[in-house]
Design a protein around this nucleic acid. Structure first.
Lengths: 129, 129
DNA sequence: ATGCAAGTTAAAGTGCGCTTCAAGTCAACC
DNA sequence: GGTTGACTTGAAGCGCACTTTAACTTGCAT
């Protein structure tokens, strides 16, 4: 498939696809003239990259995670990243509950609401990492 | 308290505190000479900002959420942000499980592992927002 | 064969969230 | 009252993830 089809099906602009290829996150397999040709599996890779960046991974991190350089992948890195996400999930949950409460709470300021403050103080304890 | 104390207790550099003040995210209450003086509650605000940025809110978003301009806060915005986080939590969970599996899986490439692909395809369905 | 829309490149530009720098002010201690 | 070190400002710089631009090439329909 040519770049236009990838653009249409992935929703990403061509400039981004070229940028990702430069970075080594995706690869085109050959050219027709100058024009890149992609195989269909690039779409799965792009989906993974998209998900990865939505959960806060940098492109370099994803390069390390998803682009096997050796004979096989770095399972320790993957587990470490899974743990990282686990901590983040706890933070998101905390913040979500805090926001839900703040939206309902009638205290004049969130900072005067004991429940909100308790959430914040709890979040502090997770601060280090 | 003066800026040095805020730096020590919050762990943030003075440059960041000035930057946040410029942005309107925190305020100092008065000066001694040129030097800003902060009240203790700035620490709670900073904790909130820290948590907020770790969960992916931009400084402008936090300005809108946590800096009441009218008589009271925008409860709808807060609820909307809580929902946003809820969606994100689902994504993080998906990715975490995908990584955990990839770390354990013996398929030659994640892209050949049906379980991993199923996760990805599922993630696609959340793609729109 | 020709025209042109769609592709290509390298380089510069953008927005965010800070950090660094240079030059200046001044509170506090001796 | 002089030094000094913590603080101040405005402006420039930086890393990331792209986007835009300008100049060029080329596959493909006519």
């Amino acid at each position: 498939m040519d770049i236009a089809e990838v653009v249409n099906t992935s929703g990403l602009p061509a400039s981004t696809l070229r940028y990702y290829e430069d970075k080594g996150l995706i690869k085109s397999n050959g050219r027709v003239g100058l024009r890149r040709q992609f195989s269909a599996n690039v779409l799965e890779r792009l989906a993974l990259i998209k998900l990865g960046s939505r959960v806060g991974f940098s492109l370099d991190e994803m390069l390390a995670m998803f682009t096997a350089d050796g004979p096989d992948i770095d399972r320790e890195l993957l587990s470490a990243k899974a743990e990282e996400l686990d901590g983040k999930i706890r933070e998101l949950t905390l913040m979500r509950d805090g926001l839900r409460h703040a939206a309902a709470c009638r205290a004049p300021s969130h900072f005067e609401c004991p429940k909100f403050l308790r959430i914040l103080r709890f979040a502090q304890r997770w601060r280090d990492r």
